[in-house]
Design a protein around this nucleic acid. Structure first.
Lengths: 258, 258
DNA sequence: ATACTTTTGTTCGCAATACGAACACAGGAG
DNA sequence: CTCCTGTGTTCGTATTGCGAACAAAAGTAT
């Protein structure tokens, strides 16, 4: 309670309200009228008008007849923010956020031939943890990220992959039947995630989601790998999946500007 | 003067200052300390601190030890400008069609202050190619899209622009005489396209056409940029211009429905 | 065309919000 | 350790942003 009061004291309400107006405009590509903005922002017309006129004066919005629309300036400021960063250097702190929230390893990979290749990672803090570095390769058919990435192939590509891939039995849980694998990949595509349960290595369970580029194609995957003893499959779905989806979305924001 | 007073009355200074802080942070990838932000923004520490804490509270910045850095939220909000519902999302495959036909980079931009801001692009397949991403800014006066966009201003607006714009000599080819620039803009308006030949950078040649909104106003431009060694100005006119006009027409079809 | 309704723009008194100065506390450098 | 610099907190207050009310403009229906 005391903390709330302190936060309140150092909070500039006009700035917060102005940012809320920016967000409202950002969701309205056709622009909004003053009254619409006021309603959506929960402000009086006079208050909303001041904020809108300030945004116009500062170059963030434009007034076109009776509508206010965001200008390209915000895009330009965002470009300035990401500068020359590559997607994977940009993504690493995002993965680290997930990793720290869970204490587990969080990684990103792309598909390369029959394998997934790790392109970014944040290590978990546990002693027993996944030890895969950037550049490491694992077979796509029996890894969560591989399943997700394969779900982005078209039917002919996937059929070709399954026909040619070297498929071995790593553990008693490994699915090796190529038809069954096709089904698991399709399921990953439909569900928007894949869980692989001790198929690569006994004790290793992981969950992955896709990362899509601006054109909507799956171009990478992000995952969390844990010891099977620590998270059940249900817990992965309930606890980890939302964090991964959020991370993927943040990376996709970056990719949208490429 | 009366206008200045009226503008002042409806101006929310706290919002303007907060946005200035966002811009300062956007140019500091490693983050800035409170004192640094205060100096750069011309604020007291207490004032800067409030704005920073508000940005943190609203999710736009993060405090990492003693440094404040922008968060990815800005990217997420900015992304909406070019998101699924926008004309630029619709336009990107059109630009890609042009880009693939020519092997060159094809982009769209809008006017923002003295600059053009890139809002969509399709990269060329050549190794030596234009490296400008969405959100990038270039000065309007010496770029093909800038010339086309400026031709959509009325005479008073254009005179005001030419009077105030920062004009420098980028290359020996750069036209810097403000009268001559007025002539080039007028010519772009009459001809319906502009070619800029090594005025921004030696070796860079580009051609642009306007995109008009439903009311017939020039609201954007599309261009193709190439190495001067690959296309002469005549070839640009003969080969590229028709493709660009077609692309602009397709985008205008979308805009006609807004 | 007119009449009515809705929306936007303007003004003004005022309270609450944002302000800066001063002090306390924390962190860094030598 | 001491000294310096930077950050966090408090508090009185003035200025900034507020909303209500009215005027003007735009939109809609007949």
């Amino acid at each position: 309670m005391q903390e709330d009061v302190a936060v309140q004291r150092d909070h500039v309400g006009s700035l917060a309200k102005g940012l809320a107006v920016v967000e409202i405009l950002s969701r309205a590509p056709g622009g909004l009228r003053l009254t619409e903005v006021a309603e959506l922002a929960g402000l009086t017309r006079a208050g909303a008008r001041r904020l809108l006129l300030t945004l116009v004066a500062e170059g963030y919005a434009e007034q076109r007849e009776r509508r206010f629309v965001l200008s390209a300036k915000l895009l330009s400021v965002a470009r300035s923010y990401i500068g020359e960063a590559s997607v994977w250097s940009y993504a690493t702190p995002i993965l680290r956020g997930v990793s720290e929230a869970l204490g587990e390893s969080c990684s990103a990979a792309v598909l390369d031939g029959e394998d997934v290749v790790y392109v970014a990672r944040a290590a978990g803090r546990r002693i027993v943890s996944v030890q895969l570095a950037v550049g490491a390769r694992l077979p796509a058919y029996c890894t969560s990220m591989g399943r997700v990435l394969l779900s982005g192939l078209d039917a002919a590509e996937l059929a070709g992959f399954l026909e040619k891939a070297s498929i071995g039995t790593n553990t008693p849980n490994t699915v090796t039947d190529r038809q069954a694998l096709a089904g698991l990949v399709a399921e990953a595509g439909r569900a928007g995630y894949a869980i692989v349960d001790q198929e690569l290595e006994i004790g290793l369970r992981s969950i992955a989601v896709p990362v899509r580029d601006r054109a909507g194609r799956i171009c990478a995957a992000v995952n969390v790998s844990t010891q099977a003893a620590r998270f059940s499959c249900d817990e992965m779905h309930g606890t980890i999946l939302p964090l991964l989806k959020q991370a993927a979305a943040l990376i996709e924001d970056f990719l949208a500007l490429q």
